[in-house]
Simulated scan of single mutants.
Amino acid sequence: MPDEHVPDDVPSPDRDVPSDSPHASDVHPRHAAEGGDEQASDDDVPGRGTPGRRHTFASLLRPRLNTSQLIVAVLCAALGFAFIVQVRQNQSDSLSSLRQSDLVRLLDDVTQRSQALEREYSSLRVTRDELQAGSGSQQAAIKLAKDRAATQGILSGRLPAQGPGVTLTIEEGTQTVGAATMFNVLEELRNAGAEAVQINGVRLVASSWFALAGNSLVVDDVPVTSPYTWVAIGDPDTLAPALGIPGGALAAVRSQGATAEVKSATKVEVTATREPEDPKYATPVPVSTAGTKR
């Protein structure tokens, strides 16, 4: 087949057409696209891209919400809302859906539980009241026991004591005061209500006694010498007159040549103590057979 003659002025697809050529505007679109690709490749070269191109690449990394995704999100929200409404409706209708017999049984169970709780509450209140009463009684008993122990300790001579009372000083003359005379002084003080008595540092109790050993006075196996200093706790207005009555204990002391002086005070101290002795013969009476207290 003879070769077709191509005019020299027709541009070849593989040749570049000068910009001032009359055929520059007739460049094929495919070549224009290839030229655009070459330009884009130039932009991808480091240092040759533009800021607008970089911003476009960063925007590609950000997530975009299209229409389908928006529709799916709305449907999910609607489905969740419907589920919540259905759950709440089921909870509110749980009792209404029960039969009458079931409701009656449920009500009976609640009533029985309430009654059981009321009984437990009442029992706990009773227990609390008993504990409080027992605690108060126990404290009162402890206080009473302490008070009684203190009283018994003073009366038995086991504890020292202080309070209003009198001080009696007897000083012998030319002769010794007899033991019986001194014992009468003790009895006079007791009869006048003395609660604690001592003489020359010896505590006098219910079992105390006086004796003479030659010319010396002995009190509960303890020798004492003149002057004899008595300390008695009690009502001074009762003790002092009781000692000074005519023909009484002090009158007998003075009749034996001794002197006696009584001084009242709002506070005196009986410091002497002694351990009480256990009784040899007496024993407590059982509570069941004890007589009525008088």
Rank of each mutant, 00 (worst) to 15 (best):
229 T>I: 14
18 P>G: 15
248 G>W: 07
204 L>C: 07
123 S>R: 11
22 P>D: 14
44 D>K: 01
59 S>T: 05
141 A>T: 09
202 V>N: 06
64 R>Y: 05
181 T>S: 10
94 S>K: 12
60 L>G: 07
179 A>E: 05
220 D>V: 09
96 S>G: 13
41 S>W: 09
216 S>L: 06
244 G>L: 15
149 A>T: 10
183 F>W: 03
186 L>M: 12
185 V>W: 03
98 L>C: 10
63 P>M: 08
263 K>M: 09
81 F>R: 10
288 S>L: 10
89 Q>H: 08
96 S>L: 13
116 A>F: 02
37 D>Y: 02
254 R>G: 02
60 L>C: 04
237 D>R: 11
24 A>P: 00
72 V>T: 10
29 P>F: 09
254 R>I: 11
167 T>H: 01
281 Y>M: 04
139 Q>H: 02
218 V>S: 05
54 R>F: 11
10 V>P: 01
218 V>K: 07
267 K>S: 14
25 S>T: 09
273 T>E: 05
181 T>W: 05
81 F>W: 13
118 E>D: 15
152 Q>R: 04
236 P>H: 09
177 V>W: 01
189 L>Y: 06
171 E>Q: 15
269 E>C: 01
124 L>P: 00
257 G>K: 13
246 P>W: 00
73 A>H: 00
29 P>W: 14
247 G>K: 03
219 V>Q: 04
243 L>N: 04
146 K>I: 08
141 A>Y: 07
26 D>K: 09
156 S>D: 14
118 E>I: 11
182 M>W: 05
108 D>T: 11
265 A>N: 02
184 N>C: 01
28 H>S: 08
277 E>R: 12
212 L>D: 07
129 D>L: 13
152 Q>T: 01
139 Q>D: 07
197 V>N: 02
249 A>W: 12
10 V>E: 08
16 D>M: 02
229 T>V: 15
220 D>T: 08
7 P>D: 15
286 P>W: 03
239 L>R: 07
259 T>G: 14
265 A>F: 04
9 D>I: 10
36 G>M: 12
290 A>G: 03
256 Q>G: 08
147 D>H: 04
160 P>T: 06
162 Q>P: 00
206 A>D: 12
83 F>G: 12
165 G>W: 08
201 G>T: 06
153 G>Y: 03
70 L>N: 05
181 T>A: 11
23 H>R: 10
135 S>I: 00
3 D>I: 05
221 D>A: 15
174 T>N: 11
77 A>Q: 02
140 A>S: 10
86 Q>V: 05
285 V>H: 00
160 P>C: 02
284 P>T: 05
256 Q>R: 14
115 Q>M: 14
